[in-house]
């Protein structure tokens, strides 16, 4: 490859709607790659026997979660206007995946996964029993005022008690449009790990004494070290 040709880097965010949330992270990767190819975008490829487009995600989204903004870093062989990118790729994406913003990033910027710090979630419930809004508020209060929330976490070396409290940054009950209520939750999320929503929910169900079926939506993702990326205020 010509050393003088500099690849152009675009950081973009896409939303993943509920109806397509059941495709896995790997499937999303493939879906995006194919959409980029259909849009005939000048993607940069890796070298080697199996060249693939240079594409890296801030983080994976659990299968079944929807999201308002998943961040992805894409390299192109030549310049492309972010607006043109948005227009062309959105025409080629299957129903339920849609890019919402894109901007050119400097090559010196760290990878998204290194900059990632936290994420916000909106969670709605189908409770398996009678649960009042007050009950959930009280349970969250208990969690937020404790210094320790210990859950058993499955690790390679067996089940281990883990304190997830430091990973919970903020949590409160919110009213939803259909007159039910849900939770808005902000948790740590970094390349090294962070708050697992399932683990949090199990702790919550335990405090309330009733389980539920949760529908999880990632409403925001926050980063450090760049003004171009959303920060947690």
């Amino acid at each position: 490859m010509d050393a003088l040709v500099k690849n152009v880097r675009i950081i973009a965010a896409f939303q993943k709607d509920k109806d397509i949330s059941y495709i896995s992270h790997l499937d999303v990767q493939r879906t995006l790659q194919r959409a980029f190819r259909r849009a005939d975008l000048p993607l940069a490829y890796t070298n080697g026997y199996n060249p693939h487009p240079k594409l890296s995600f801030a983080t994976a989204l659990a299968t079944g979660f929807s999201s308002a903004a998943e961040f992805v870093d894409i390299e192109f062989e030549r310049e492309i206007e972010p607006d043109i990118f948005l227009e062309r790729v959105n025409e080629m994406l299957p129903c339920g995946i849609h890019f919402v913003k894109a901007f050119v990033a400097d090559s010196s910027l760290d990878t998204l996964s290194k900059l990632l710090s936290s994420a916000k979630y909106s969670i709605s419930f189908n409770w398996e029993g009678e649960v009042s809004k007050t009950q959930v508020e009280e349970a969250l209060q208990t969690i937020m005022t404790s210094t320790e929330v210990v859950v058993s976490k499955k690790t390679k070396s067996g089940i281990k008690p883990t304190n997830i409290r430091p990973d919970i940054l903020e949590a409160h009950v919110v009213d939803l449009a259909d007159e039910s209520f849900g939770i808005e939750l902000t948790g740590k999320l970094t390349a090294a790990g962070g708050l697992r929503i399932e683990t949090f929910l199990n702790a919550l169900y335990e405090k309330i004494g009733v389980s539920g079926f949760a529908s999880v939506h990632r409403s925001g993702m926050y980063f450090i070290g760049s003004d171009l990326l959303p920060r947690l205020s």
Binding site: I20, I23, R38, G64, M92
Partner: peptide, 19 residues
């Protein structure tokens, strides 16, 4: 549908919506 899909492996088998 959502409740079913959380219970099964490879739920993408059952959602359609393909390009």
């Amino acid at each position: 549908l959502e409740k079913l899909l959380t219970k099964v492996e490879k739920p993408a088998r059952y959602i359609g919506q393909e390009w």
